[in-house]
Write a protein that binds this DNA or RNA. Structure first.
Length: 555
RNA sequence: GACCCUGUAGCUCAGCAGGAUAGAGCAGCCGCCUCCUAAGCGGCAGGUCGAAGGUUCGAAUCCUUUCAGGGUCGCCA
């Protein structure tokens, strides 16, 4: 538990005792005490609405209750400097400042581990994200999914979960036959043969590129080869190259998976039929119109779903159910699937499936990623200027840079529609929030370099009690809030809580910088302020790392 | 027709397990570099929180209805 949490917890306990000893409520009646951090600093470090909550129980006016609590609370034990009763009955607490000094020491000691907590208690959670078909190039929406999935994984990890990132490769459906046939056609075309692309063939330039590779490596060896063998080769080749490309694109975007799970491995390892049998045994299936159906309506879906089509093949759902069963078999307590908004209609049937298999609905969370619209100079960008096709993730990375791209995607709530402002993301100016935050880090580094030249070292045991200005305290307080920001982001699957936090911290640092000097004639003051800004630097770096953004030393 | 997401300042968005005069950035206006990076800081102005009901001591936040924008409704994946 972080200092700030401990402090709040202790304050809660002391409040409960004060309420009891003032006879305002019995032990059974005390409501859950909520300690909040007021937005307005005139309202103290912390505030509680306990007096208002107690009004009905104690049958007294909230302000009178607040007076009673104020008389009975142990200031020393609660670490309260002074308190005010305000508004309709809020109690505002101004805390003793010692805890703030401890915050700085903690950061300097824990360094990159500052912000870690045991909130998740080691729960094993798997985050599955991107999982785009290996048949083409990653686009805007995938980029957002990648940024959110990776940031969320980092956040959960810091919040004390055991996290595994997984990519589900859809390498078994019709789309792979299509890929095979497309590649075969492109290959033959490269050899000036008369070959037509399949009706829904993949027109992407990547496939033409692969065909050229095959020609230069193998020549026309496959031209007259046995069709079955030839297609097996193209299938494998196409899949391998598409998957490698996905991995490269994602790695360059600073997204790395622990596991790439192949859909076809479910077939190879015979993991599908047993799950069908299990559903059948549990009477969750029935036969109709020559097909096998899953009775998903039993679990809240609005219609039943086909598992085996009347041509004897599986629908997409069938191996997917087996896949989710396999995830649980691998020991995960919770599953998080990050899906594009176009898949939201699929959620009820997946939830139905895991319940039919005996798991709890809340063991699966589907985090929907809403659509992204690109804007440049106020105009909606429909297509890439370079290719005339949809804008790819790689183009975005190259055009606006990885830091800005990652930050912009992390910056907004995942389930909201996103307007991505290319002009803003590319601008190297104060308008751009990424630069604003990175600048705070670079500014600190600059001061630290100069301190180093003057022979100063960072001293975790520096006497911080001489830091008494409002800006000093505001900065320490903001640093202390970081662990809570991470927990909050983890709890709500909300990476944007981290970008909001880091922006606030940068703002507090810039404000501090303009009001107070770090490198001064006063040696002990200088040492104390150096310790403080180093703590801020570490916190900025840790926070940026969770959203995949670099913390530069110079700008 | 059903379902999902979103309607908060001119623009882009926070805030939503109810709480104090609704916040930030950008854009606009006014100030601040003999001083550790002005990619910065301080200030001013700007909002019937889509609308209407309801619950509550208290609603941007919860409930109902309704309007608007986007998305999805396959024995495709």
């Amino acid at each position: 538990m972080s200092q700030v949490e401990e402090l709040k917890q202790n304050l809660k306990t002391q409040l409960q005792q004060a309420i009891l000893s003032a006879g305002l409520a019995g032990e059974e009646e005390i409501p859950e005490i909520v300690i909040e951090t007021p937005k307005d600093k005139d309202h103290g470090d912390f505030a509680t609405n306990a007096a208002m909550q107690l009004a009905r129980i104690a049958k007294k006016a909230p302000r009178a209750i607040a007076e009673d609590i104020a008389e009975h609370i142990n200031y020393e034990e609660a670490a309260v400097e002074k308190l005010d009763i305000a508004g309709p009955g809020f109690i505002n607490f101004f805390m003793k400042k010692d805890y703030l000094l401890d915050v700085v020491k903690t950061v300097l000691t824990q360094k990159e581990n500052f912000g870690r907590s045991d909130y998740g208690k080691g729960t094993k959670v798997q985050v599955e994200f991107v999982s785009a078909n290996p048949t083409g190039t990653l686009h805007l929406g995938h980029a957002r999914g990648a940024a959110v999935g990776d940031s969320l994984s980092n956040i959960l990890d810091k919040a004390g979960y055991q996290v595994e990132r997984e990519y589900y490769i859809n390498d078994a459906g019709n789309q792979i036959d299509n890929l095979t046939l497309s590649l075969e056609a492109r290959y033959l075309q490269e050899l000036d043969e008369d070959a037509v692309m399949p009706e829904d063939g993949y027109q992407g330039a990547d496939i033409i590129g692969f065909a050229k590779e095959i020609v230069s490596a193998y020549g026309d060896r496959f031209k007259d080869a046995d069709q079955e063998k030839r297609r097996a080769f193209f299938r494998e080749y196409g899949l391998k190259r598409e998957t490698d490309k996905l991995k490269d694109d994602l790695a360059d975007f600073r997204v790395n998976f622990d596991n790439w799970f192949s859909e076809s491995s479910l077939y190879e390892e015979d993991k599908i039929q047993p799950v069908l049998d299990e559903l059948k045994q549990r009477r969750n299936t029935y036969e109709e119109d020559g097909a096998t159906w899953f009775r998903s309506t039993e679990y809240g879906d609005d219609k039943d779903r086909v598992l085996i089509k009347n041509d004897g093949t599986y629908t997409y759902l069938t191996p997917d159910i087996s896949y989710h069963k396999d995830k649980f078999n691998r020991g995960f307590d919770e599953l998080i699937n990050v899906w594009g908004a176009d898949h939201h209609g699929y959620i009820p049937r997946m939830e139905a499936a895991i319940q039919a298999l005996g798991y709890q609905k809340d063991q699966l969370t589907v985090q929907i990623i809403q659509m992204v619209n690109l804007f440049e100079n106020g105009e909606k960008v429909k297509m890439s200027k370079r290719t005339g096709n949809a804008v790819t993730m790689r183009e975005l990375m190259e055009e606006v840079g990885i830091d800005a791209t990652r930050y912009f995607f992390a910056m907004r709530a995942p389930e909201t529609h996103l307007d991505f402002d290319l002009t803003l993301a590319k601008s190297e100016s104060n308008e751009n929030p990424v630069f604003y935050v990175q600048y705070a880090h670079a500014r600190i580094c600059s001061m630290l370099r100069q301190a180093d030249e003057k022979g100063y070292t960072i001293d975790a045991d520096a006497d911080l009690s001489i830091l008494k200005s409002e800006k000093d305290h505001a900065l320490m307080k903001k640093v202390g809030e970081y662990p809570e920001a991470i927990v909050d982001a983890a709890r709500r699957h909300a990476p944007h809580r981290v970008t909001n936090y880091v922006y606030d911290l940068a703002q507090t640092l810039h404000s501090f910088y303009n009001a107070e000097k770090v490198l001064t004639e006063d040696e002990s003051l200088t040492k104390a302020r150096l310790a403080l800004i180093e703590a801020v630097r570490i916190t900025l770096q840790n926070a940026l790392e969770t959203v995949g953004v670099n913390a530069p030393e110079r700008m």
